[in-house]
Amino acid sequence: MELSQVLEEVNSIFCKVLNKPTIILTESSTADDVDEWDSLNNIRLIAEVEQHFKVKFKLREIMKLKNVGELCTNIQKKTA
């Protein structure tokens, strides 16, 4: 899957989970850029991403994700 497609799908997951259709993510977006992205929502986002892409993240992998781009690259690797 192309990275841009992963990003697009991740973007719609964020809009759905955070209940905010206006979110526009870029590869460099972080939790600091999206007001609603806190601990609680992070768990919901990861759960939704895992379900959608049929992948599983370890805590250490989640912890090392520094931005949305890294999340997408990780998904790309896991689904390859």
């Binding site: 939790a31 600091d32 992205w37 806190d38 912890m63």
Partner: peptide
């Protein structure tokens, strides 16, 4: 305080 606390604490 701003971002995802539980992963920071674990880290």
């Amino acid at each position: 305080q701003n971002s995802v606390k539980y992963t920071q604490v674990y880290e």
